[in-house]
Design a protein around this nucleic acid. Structure first.
Lengths: 214, 214
DNA sequence: GGTTAATAACTGACTGGATAGTTATATATG
DNA sequence: CATATATAACTATCCAGTCAGTTATTAACC
Protein backbone atom coordinates (compact mmCIF):
# COMPACT_ATOMS: atom_id res chain seq x y z
CA UNK A 1 0.00 0.00 0.00
CA UNK A 2 2.15 2.89 -1.24
CA UNK A 3 1.14 6.37 -0.22
CA UNK A 4 2.46 8.43 -3.09
CA UNK A 5 1.04 11.86 -2.49
CA UNK A 6 1.37 12.24 1.28
CA UNK A 7 4.46 11.00 3.09
CA UNK A 8 6.74 8.87 1.02
CA UNK A 9 8.98 6.71 3.12
CA UNK A 10 11.99 8.05 1.26
CA UNK A 11 12.83 10.08 -1.81
CA UNK A 12 15.17 9.60 -4.73
CA UNK A 13 17.89 12.19 -4.41
CA UNK A 14 20.80 10.67 -6.24
CA UNK A 15 22.29 14.08 -7.01
CA UNK A 16 22.32 15.39 -3.47
CA UNK A 17 23.15 12.20 -1.60
CA UNK A 18 26.92 12.10 -1.99
CA UNK A 19 27.46 15.60 -0.58
CA UNK A 20 25.00 14.91 2.23
CA UNK A 21 26.79 11.70 3.10
CA UNK A 22 30.20 13.36 3.07
CA UNK A 23 28.91 16.14 5.27
CA UNK A 24 27.41 13.72 7.76
CA UNK A 25 30.55 11.61 7.70
CA UNK A 26 32.66 14.69 8.36
CA UNK A 27 30.77 15.32 11.56
CA UNK A 28 30.88 11.72 12.75
CA UNK A 29 34.53 11.16 11.86
CA UNK A 30 35.49 14.43 13.53
CA UNK A 31 33.73 13.37 16.68
CA UNK A 32 34.82 9.73 16.82
CA UNK A 33 37.81 9.21 14.58
CA UNK A 34 37.86 6.70 11.78
CA UNK A 35 37.55 3.29 13.34
CA UNK A 36 35.16 4.31 16.10
CA UNK A 37 32.80 5.98 13.63
CA UNK A 38 29.87 3.71 12.81
CA UNK A 39 28.43 3.57 9.32
CA UNK A 40 25.00 3.38 10.88
CA UNK A 41 25.62 6.72 12.59
CA UNK A 42 26.77 8.31 9.37
CA UNK A 43 23.78 6.92 7.52
CA UNK A 44 21.33 8.07 10.15
CA UNK A 45 22.85 11.54 10.20
CA UNK A 46 22.64 11.72 6.43
CA UNK A 47 19.02 10.59 6.56
CA UNK A 48 19.56 7.35 4.69
CA UNK A 49 20.05 3.69 5.46
CA UNK A 50 23.45 2.09 5.67
CA UNK A 51 22.88 0.26 2.43
CA UNK A 52 22.49 3.55 0.59
CA UNK A 53 26.06 4.51 1.49
CA UNK A 54 27.25 1.64 -0.66
CA UNK A 55 25.39 3.00 -3.66
CA UNK A 56 27.73 5.98 -3.65
CA UNK A 57 30.95 4.78 -2.00
CA UNK A 58 32.86 1.55 -2.21
CA UNK A 59 33.67 1.25 1.46
CA UNK A 60 34.30 3.12 4.67
CA UNK A 61 37.73 4.35 3.71
CA UNK A 62 36.41 5.81 0.45
CA UNK A 63 34.04 7.94 2.48
CA UNK A 64 36.87 9.00 4.75
CA UNK A 65 39.01 10.01 1.80
CA UNK A 66 36.18 12.08 0.36
CA UNK A 67 35.84 13.87 3.69
CA UNK A 68 39.54 14.60 3.93
CA UNK A 69 39.65 15.76 0.36
CA UNK A 70 36.69 18.07 0.83
CA UNK A 71 38.06 19.49 4.06
CA UNK A 72 41.29 20.48 2.39
CA UNK A 73 40.58 22.29 -0.84
CA UNK A 74 38.66 25.34 0.39
CA UNK A 75 41.28 26.32 2.97
CA UNK A 76 44.50 25.84 1.09
CA UNK A 77 43.39 27.77 -1.97
CA UNK A 78 42.66 30.95 -0.08
CA UNK A 79 46.03 31.00 1.62
CA UNK A 80 47.87 30.15 -1.55
CA UNK A 81 46.47 33.00 -3.64
CA UNK A 82 46.92 35.44 -0.77
CA UNK A 83 50.55 34.45 -0.43
CA UNK A 84 51.45 34.50 -4.09
CA UNK A 85 49.78 37.75 -5.00
CA UNK A 86 51.00 39.92 -2.17
CA UNK A 87 53.72 42.32 -3.33
CA UNK A 88 54.88 44.05 -0.13
CA UNK A 89 57.71 43.29 2.29
CA UNK A 90 57.98 39.91 3.97
CA UNK A 91 57.06 41.15 7.43
CA UNK A 92 53.75 42.55 6.19
CA UNK A 93 52.97 39.34 4.38
CA UNK A 94 53.59 37.33 7.53
CA UNK A 95 51.37 39.66 9.51
CA UNK A 96 48.67 38.97 6.94
CA UNK A 97 49.05 35.24 6.39
CA UNK A 98 49.64 33.88 9.88
CA UNK A 99 46.53 35.50 11.37
CA UNK A 100 44.55 34.15 8.42
CA UNK A 101 45.77 30.67 9.19
CA UNK A 102 45.05 31.27 12.86
CA UNK A 103 41.55 32.38 11.98
CA UNK A 104 40.90 29.27 9.91
CA UNK A 105 42.41 27.11 12.63
CA UNK A 106 40.35 28.76 15.36
CA UNK A 107 36.99 28.64 13.64
CA UNK A 108 36.91 25.69 11.24
CA UNK A 109 36.88 22.00 12.06
CA UNK A 110 40.40 21.73 10.74
CA UNK A 111 41.62 20.79 14.19
CA UNK A 112 39.26 17.85 14.38
CA UNK A 113 40.46 16.59 11.04
CA UNK A 114 44.11 17.01 11.96
CA UNK A 115 43.52 15.07 15.13
CA UNK A 116 41.73 12.39 13.17
CA UNK A 117 44.50 12.06 10.61
CA UNK A 118 47.20 11.95 13.26
CA UNK A 119 45.36 9.33 15.24
CA UNK A 120 44.51 7.04 12.36
CA UNK A 121 47.61 7.48 10.23
CA UNK A 122 49.22 4.32 11.53
CA UNK A 123 46.35 2.09 10.52
CA UNK A 124 45.40 3.97 7.36
CA UNK A 125 48.59 5.29 5.80
CA UNK A 126 46.91 6.03 2.50
CA UNK A 127 44.94 8.66 4.29
CA UNK A 128 48.01 10.25 5.83
CA UNK A 129 49.54 10.32 2.37
CA UNK A 130 46.60 12.22 0.88
CA UNK A 131 46.58 14.67 3.74
CA UNK A 132 50.32 15.19 3.53
CA UNK A 133 50.51 15.60 -0.22
CA UNK A 134 47.47 17.80 -0.60
CA UNK A 135 47.74 20.02 2.44
CA UNK A 136 50.82 19.76 4.62
CA UNK A 137 53.50 19.59 1.96
CA UNK A 138 51.73 22.27 -0.08
CA UNK A 139 51.26 24.71 2.79
CA UNK A 140 54.77 24.14 4.05
CA UNK A 141 56.07 24.56 0.52
CA UNK A 142 54.31 27.88 0.05
CA UNK A 143 55.65 29.25 3.30
CA UNK A 144 59.14 27.92 2.64
CA UNK A 145 59.11 29.48 -0.81
CA UNK A 146 58.12 32.85 0.58
CA UNK A 147 60.95 32.71 3.07
CA UNK A 148 63.47 31.65 0.42
CA UNK A 149 62.47 34.56 -1.78
CA UNK A 150 62.71 36.96 1.16
CA UNK A 151 66.19 35.60 1.85
CA UNK A 152 67.18 36.19 -1.75
CA UNK A 153 65.99 39.75 -1.47
CA UNK A 154 68.00 40.16 1.70
CA UNK A 155 64.96 40.59 3.93
CA UNK A 156 65.39 37.42 5.98
CA UNK A 157 68.50 36.08 7.67
CA UNK A 158 70.31 33.02 6.36
CA UNK A 159 69.15 29.71 7.78
CA UNK A 160 67.07 26.69 6.77
CA UNK A 161 63.86 28.15 5.29
CA UNK A 162 61.83 25.03 5.96
CA UNK A 163 62.75 25.18 9.63
CA UNK A 164 61.87 28.86 9.67
CA UNK A 165 58.46 27.96 8.25
CA UNK A 166 57.92 25.47 11.06
CA UNK A 167 59.00 28.07 13.59
CA UNK A 168 56.32 30.37 12.23
CA UNK A 169 53.26 28.13 12.09
CA UNK A 170 53.75 25.46 14.76
CA UNK A 171 52.22 27.32 17.73
CA UNK A 172 48.91 27.71 15.95
CA UNK A 173 48.79 24.03 15.08
CA UNK A 174 49.67 23.04 18.62
CA UNK A 175 47.02 25.36 19.99
CA UNK A 176 44.40 23.72 17.78
CA UNK A 177 45.48 20.23 18.77
CA UNK A 178 45.47 21.30 22.39
CA UNK A 179 41.94 22.57 22.06
CA UNK A 180 40.67 19.36 20.52
CA UNK A 181 42.54 17.07 22.86
CA UNK A 182 42.79 18.71 26.26
CA UNK A 183 40.11 21.37 26.58
CA UNK A 184 37.40 18.70 26.89
CA UNK A 185 39.20 17.31 29.94
CA UNK A 186 39.74 20.57 31.74
CA UNK A 187 42.81 22.01 30.06
CA UNK A 188 42.98 25.79 29.76
CA UNK A 189 42.79 26.68 26.10
CA UNK A 190 44.48 29.39 24.11
CA UNK A 191 43.21 32.56 22.51
CA UNK A 192 44.49 31.53 19.12
CA UNK A 193 44.36 34.91 17.34
CA UNK A 194 46.11 36.57 20.28
CA UNK A 195 48.68 33.81 20.35
CA UNK A 196 49.26 34.33 16.64
CA UNK A 197 49.77 38.07 17.01
CA UNK A 198 52.22 37.72 19.87
CA UNK A 199 54.06 34.89 18.17
CA UNK A 200 54.58 36.85 14.96
CA UNK A 201 56.11 39.78 16.78
CA UNK A 202 58.26 37.42 18.83
CA UNK A 203 59.66 35.62 15.82
CA UNK A 204 60.02 38.45 13.32
CA UNK A 205 62.95 40.22 15.04
CA UNK A 206 64.97 37.02 14.83
CA UNK A 207 63.92 36.41 11.27
CA UNK A 208 64.39 39.80 9.64
CA UNK A 209 67.73 41.21 8.68
CA UNK A 210 66.92 44.64 10.02
CA UNK A 211 66.68 44.28 13.73
CA UNK A 212 63.81 46.67 14.45
CA UNK A 213 61.18 44.34 12.97
CA UNK A 214 59.69 46.77 10.50
CA UNK B 1 53.95 -35.71 32.97
CA UNK B 2 55.57 -32.49 34.13
CA UNK B 3 59.12 -31.92 32.99
CA UNK B 4 60.53 -29.74 35.75
CA UNK B 5 64.17 -29.50 34.83
CA UNK B 6 63.98 -29.13 31.06
CA UNK B 7 61.37 -26.99 29.35
CA UNK B 8 58.40 -25.98 31.42
CA UNK B 9 55.56 -24.58 29.34
CA UNK B 10 55.68 -21.40 31.36
CA UNK B 11 57.20 -20.01 34.53
CA UNK B 12 55.77 -18.16 37.48
CA UNK B 13 57.05 -14.62 37.34
CA UNK B 14 54.47 -12.62 39.18
CA UNK B 15 57.01 -9.93 40.09
CA UNK B 16 58.26 -9.30 36.58
CA UNK B 17 55.02 -9.76 34.67
CA UNK B 18 53.42 -6.33 35.11
CA UNK B 19 56.46 -4.46 33.80
CA UNK B 20 56.82 -6.91 30.94
CA UNK B 21 53.19 -6.49 30.00
CA UNK B 22 53.40 -2.71 30.12
CA UNK B 23 56.50 -2.77 27.98
CA UNK B 24 54.89 -5.02 25.41
CA UNK B 25 51.73 -2.94 25.46
CA UNK B 26 53.79 0.20 24.92
CA UNK B 27 55.14 -1.22 21.70
CA UNK B 28 51.81 -2.46 20.43
CA UNK B 29 49.85 0.66 21.37
CA UNK B 30 52.55 2.85 19.83
CA UNK B 31 52.30 0.92 16.61
CA UNK B 32 48.55 0.51 16.38
CA UNK B 33 46.87 3.01 18.65
CA UNK B 34 44.48 2.01 21.40
CA UNK B 35 41.49 0.46 19.73
CA UNK B 36 43.41 -1.28 16.97
CA UNK B 37 45.79 -2.90 19.44
CA UNK B 38 44.79 -6.48 20.15
CA UNK B 39 45.17 -7.95 23.61
CA UNK B 40 46.32 -11.16 21.98
CA UNK B 41 49.19 -9.25 20.37
CA UNK B 42 50.17 -7.66 23.65
CA UNK B 43 50.00 -10.99 25.43
CA UNK B 44 52.06 -12.74 22.78
CA UNK B 45 54.69 -10.01 22.85
CA UNK B 46 54.85 -10.24 26.63
CA UNK B 47 55.19 -14.00 26.42
CA UNK B 48 51.95 -14.77 28.23
CA UNK B 49 48.41 -15.71 27.37
CA UNK B 50 45.62 -13.19 27.15
CA UNK B 51 44.11 -14.49 30.34
CA UNK B 52 47.26 -13.61 32.26
CA UNK B 53 46.79 -9.94 31.41
CA UNK B 54 43.68 -9.97 33.54
CA UNK B 55 45.58 -11.25 36.54
CA UNK B 56 47.45 -7.96 36.64
CA UNK B 57 45.13 -5.42 35.02
CA UNK B 58 41.41 -4.88 35.16
CA UNK B 59 40.88 -4.22 31.50
CA UNK B 60 42.43 -2.85 28.34
CA UNK B 61 42.22 0.78 29.39
CA UNK B 62 44.02 0.05 32.65
CA UNK B 63 46.93 -1.28 30.65
CA UNK B 64 46.86 1.81 28.46
CA UNK B 65 46.91 4.07 31.49
CA UNK B 66 49.87 2.23 32.92
CA UNK B 67 51.72 2.73 29.65
CA UNK B 68 50.97 6.43 29.53
CA UNK B 69 51.90 6.85 33.15
CA UNK B 70 55.21 5.04 32.71
CA UNK B 71 56.09 7.00 29.60
CA UNK B 72 55.74 10.28 31.44
CA UNK B 73 57.65 10.13 34.69
CA UNK B 74 61.21 9.61 33.46
CA UNK B 75 61.09 12.53 31.04
CA UNK B 76 59.42 15.23 33.04
CA UNK B 77 61.63 14.86 36.09
CA UNK B 78 64.88 15.52 34.26
CA UNK B 79 63.62 18.72 32.69
CA UNK B 80 62.04 19.95 35.89
CA UNK B 81 65.17 19.69 38.00
CA UNK B 82 67.29 21.19 35.27
CA UNK B 83 64.96 24.14 34.97
CA UNK B 84 64.57 24.86 38.63
CA UNK B 85 68.21 24.58 39.61
CA UNK B 86 69.78 26.65 36.89
CA UNK B 87 70.88 30.07 38.18
CA UNK B 88 72.11 31.91 35.06
CA UNK B 89 70.36 34.29 32.67
CA UNK B 90 67.17 33.27 30.90
CA UNK B 91 68.74 33.01 27.46
CA UNK B 92 71.29 30.47 28.67
CA UNK B 93 68.61 28.45 30.36
CA UNK B 94 66.57 28.34 27.17
CA UNK B 95 69.62 27.26 25.21
CA UNK B 96 69.99 24.44 27.71
CA UNK B 97 66.40 23.32 28.15
CA UNK B 98 64.99 23.43 24.65
CA UNK B 99 67.72 21.25 23.13
CA UNK B 100 67.19 18.80 25.99
CA UNK B 101 63.54 18.60 25.14
CA UNK B 102 64.44 18.27 21.48
CA UNK B 103 66.81 15.45 22.31
CA UNK B 104 64.17 13.59 24.27
CA UNK B 105 61.64 14.21 21.54
CA UNK B 106 64.00 13.05 18.82
CA UNK B 107 65.19 9.85 20.46
CA UNK B 108 62.47 8.54 22.77
CA UNK B 109 59.12 7.09 21.81
CA UNK B 110 57.43 10.13 23.24
CA UNK B 111 56.17 11.03 19.79
CA UNK B 112 54.37 7.74 19.43
CA UNK B 113 52.67 8.25 22.75
CA UNK B 114 51.67 11.80 21.91
CA UNK B 115 50.18 10.62 18.67
CA UNK B 116 48.35 7.87 20.49
CA UNK B 117 46.91 10.21 23.11
CA UNK B 118 45.83 12.76 20.54
CA UNK B 119 44.22 10.14 18.39
CA UNK B 120 42.33 8.34 21.13
CA UNK B 121 41.47 11.28 23.36
CA UNK B 122 37.97 11.60 21.97
CA UNK B 123 37.00 8.06 22.81
CA UNK B 124 39.04 7.80 26.02
CA UNK B 125 38.98 11.18 27.73
CA UNK B 126 40.25 9.79 31.00
CA UNK B 127 43.48 9.08 29.24
CA UNK B 128 43.78 12.60 27.87
CA UNK B 129 43.17 13.87 31.37
CA UNK B 130 46.04 11.85 32.85
CA UNK B 131 48.37 12.93 30.08
CA UNK B 132 47.37 16.55 30.43
CA UNK B 133 47.59 16.73 34.20
CA UNK B 134 50.81 14.78 34.58
CA UNK B 135 52.81 16.01 31.62
CA UNK B 136 51.40 18.82 29.50
CA UNK B 137 50.16 21.13 32.22
CA UNK B 138 53.27 20.49 34.29
CA UNK B 139 55.77 21.10 31.48
CA UNK B 140 53.90 24.15 30.29
CA UNK B 141 53.70 25.42 33.85
CA UNK B 142 57.44 25.07 34.38
CA UNK B 143 58.24 26.94 31.21
CA UNK B 144 55.64 29.60 31.89
CA UNK B 145 57.01 30.08 35.39
CA UNK B 146 60.54 30.52 34.07
CA UNK B 147 59.34 33.16 31.64
CA UNK B 148 57.36 34.98 34.31
CA UNK B 149 60.39 35.12 36.57
CA UNK B 150 62.54 36.38 33.71
CA UNK B 151 59.96 39.06 33.05
CA UNK B 152 60.04 40.11 36.69
CA UNK B 153 63.80 40.40 36.50
CA UNK B 154 63.46 42.52 33.38
CA UNK B 155 65.07 39.94 31.10
CA UNK B 156 62.02 39.17 28.98
CA UNK B 157 59.61 41.56 27.30
CA UNK B 158 56.06 41.98 28.57
CA UNK B 159 53.50 39.67 27.03
CA UNK B 160 51.49 36.55 27.89
CA UNK B 161 54.06 34.12 29.35
CA UNK B 162 52.01 31.05 28.54
CA UNK B 163 51.84 32.08 24.90
CA UNK B 164 55.58 32.70 24.94
CA UNK B 165 56.05 29.18 26.27
CA UNK B 166 54.03 27.79 23.38
CA UNK B 167 56.05 29.88 20.94
CA UNK B 168 59.18 28.26 22.31
CA UNK B 169 58.31 24.56 22.31
CA UNK B 170 55.71 24.05 19.57
CA UNK B 171 58.08 23.46 16.64
CA UNK B 172 59.69 20.51 18.36
CA UNK B 173 56.32 18.95 19.12
CA UNK B 174 55.14 19.47 15.57
CA UNK B 175 58.35 17.97 14.22
CA UNK B 176 57.81 14.86 16.32
CA UNK B 177 54.20 14.52 15.26
CA UNK B 178 55.26 15.03 11.67
CA UNK B 179 57.81 12.27 11.97
CA UNK B 180 55.31 9.80 13.38
CA UNK B 181 52.52 10.71 11.02
CA UNK B 182 54.00 11.67 7.66
CA UNK B 183 57.51 10.26 7.37
CA UNK B 184 56.12 6.73 6.94
CA UNK B 185 54.21 7.94 3.86
CA UNK B 186 57.05 9.77 2.20
CA UNK B 187 57.13 13.11 4.00
CA UNK B 188 60.53 14.72 4.42
CA UNK B 189 61.36 14.77 8.10
CA UNK B 190 63.15 17.34 10.19
CA UNK B 191 66.52 17.36 11.87
CA UNK B 192 65.00 18.05 15.24
CA UNK B 193 68.12 19.18 17.13
CA UNK B 194 69.05 21.53 14.27
CA UNK B 195 65.50 22.82 14.16
CA UNK B 196 65.67 23.44 17.90
CA UNK B 197 68.93 25.39 17.66
CA UNK B 198 67.72 27.59 14.84
CA UNK B 199 64.35 28.13 16.47
CA UNK B 200 65.88 29.28 19.75
CA UNK B 201 68.02 31.89 18.05
CA UNK B 202 65.04 32.99 15.98
CA UNK B 203 62.79 33.49 18.96
CA UNK B 204 65.20 34.85 21.56
CA UNK B 205 65.72 38.30 19.95
CA UNK B 206 61.97 38.90 20.10
CA UNK B 207 61.77 37.58 23.64
CA UNK B 208 64.67 39.29 25.37
CA UNK B 209 64.66 42.89 26.41
CA UNK B 210 68.16 43.51 25.15
CA UNK B 211 67.99 43.18 21.42
CA UNK B 212 71.34 41.52 20.76
CA UNK B 213 70.24 38.15 22.16
CA UNK B 214 72.97 37.70 24.75
C1' DG C 1 65.77 -36.41 50.63
C1' DG C 2 61.62 -37.89 48.74
C1' DT C 3 56.68 -37.87 48.44
C1' DT C 4 52.38 -35.51 48.66
C1' DA C 5 49.18 -31.82 49.42
C1' DA C 6 48.05 -26.89 48.78
C1' DT C 7 48.20 -22.81 46.29
C1' DA C 8 49.48 -19.29 43.09
C1' DA C 9 50.22 -18.51 38.31
C1' DC C 10 48.85 -19.33 34.01
C1' DT C 11 46.42 -21.12 29.74
C1' DG C 12 43.33 -21.22 25.86
C1' DA C 13 38.83 -22.25 24.27
C1' DC C 14 34.68 -19.96 24.57
C1' DT C 15 30.97 -16.23 24.68
C1' DG C 16 28.60 -12.11 23.76
C1' DG C 17 28.37 -7.98 21.52
C1' DA C 18 29.55 -5.02 18.02
C1' DT C 19 29.78 -3.64 13.23
C1' DA C 20 31.45 -3.63 8.11
C1' DG C 21 29.62 -5.13 4.20
C1' DT C 22 25.74 -7.90 1.32
C1' DT C 23 21.39 -8.88 -0.59
C1' DA C 24 16.49 -9.85 -1.17
C1' DT C 25 12.76 -6.98 -1.31
C1' DA C 26 10.06 -2.66 -1.61
C1' DT C 27 8.91 1.93 -3.32
C1' DA C 28 9.34 6.35 -5.72
C1' DT C 29 9.33 8.39 -10.13
C1' DG C 30 9.33 9.38 -15.24
C1' DC D 1 5.19 -0.35 -15.62
C1' DA D 2 10.23 -0.26 -15.87
C1' DT D 3 13.94 0.63 -13.23
C1' DA D 4 16.82 3.49 -10.41
C1' DT D 5 16.91 4.24 -5.71
C1' DA D 6 16.54 2.91 -1.18
C1' DT D 7 15.59 -0.17 2.81
C1' DA D 8 16.04 -3.61 6.48
C1' DA D 9 17.24 -7.84 7.65
C1' DC D 10 20.98 -10.69 7.09
C1' DT D 11 25.89 -12.74 7.25
C1' DA D 12 30.62 -12.90 8.40
C1' DT D 13 34.20 -11.48 11.19
C1' DC D 14 36.62 -9.63 14.80
C1' DC D 15 37.92 -9.15 19.55
C1' DA D 16 37.50 -7.83 24.72
C1' DG D 17 36.66 -10.19 28.50
C1' DT D 18 35.57 -14.84 31.13
C1' DC D 19 36.41 -19.09 33.33
C1' DA D 20 37.10 -24.04 33.92
C1' DG D 21 40.92 -26.49 33.84
C1' DT D 22 46.23 -27.15 33.86
C1' DT D 23 50.92 -26.55 35.50
C1' DA D 24 54.74 -24.68 38.24
C1' DT D 25 56.18 -23.81 42.74
C1' DT D 26 56.14 -23.94 47.59
C1' DA D 27 55.25 -26.13 51.98
C1' DA D 28 54.41 -29.84 54.96
C1' DC D 29 55.36 -34.13 56.46
C1' DC D 30 57.53 -38.54 56.81
Amino acid sequence: MPNPSEHPKWRRRSKERPAEIVSAAYAVFAEKGFSAAKLDDIAQRAGVSKGALYLYFGNKQDIFEAVVHDAIAPNIGAIETMALQHPGPFADLVRLIIPSIAQIAATSSLGKVIKMVVGESGNFPELARIWHDELIARALGILTGLIERAQTRGEVKPGDPRNYAVSLISPMLIAVLFRETFEPVGGTGFDIPALARQHIETVLPGLLVESDGR
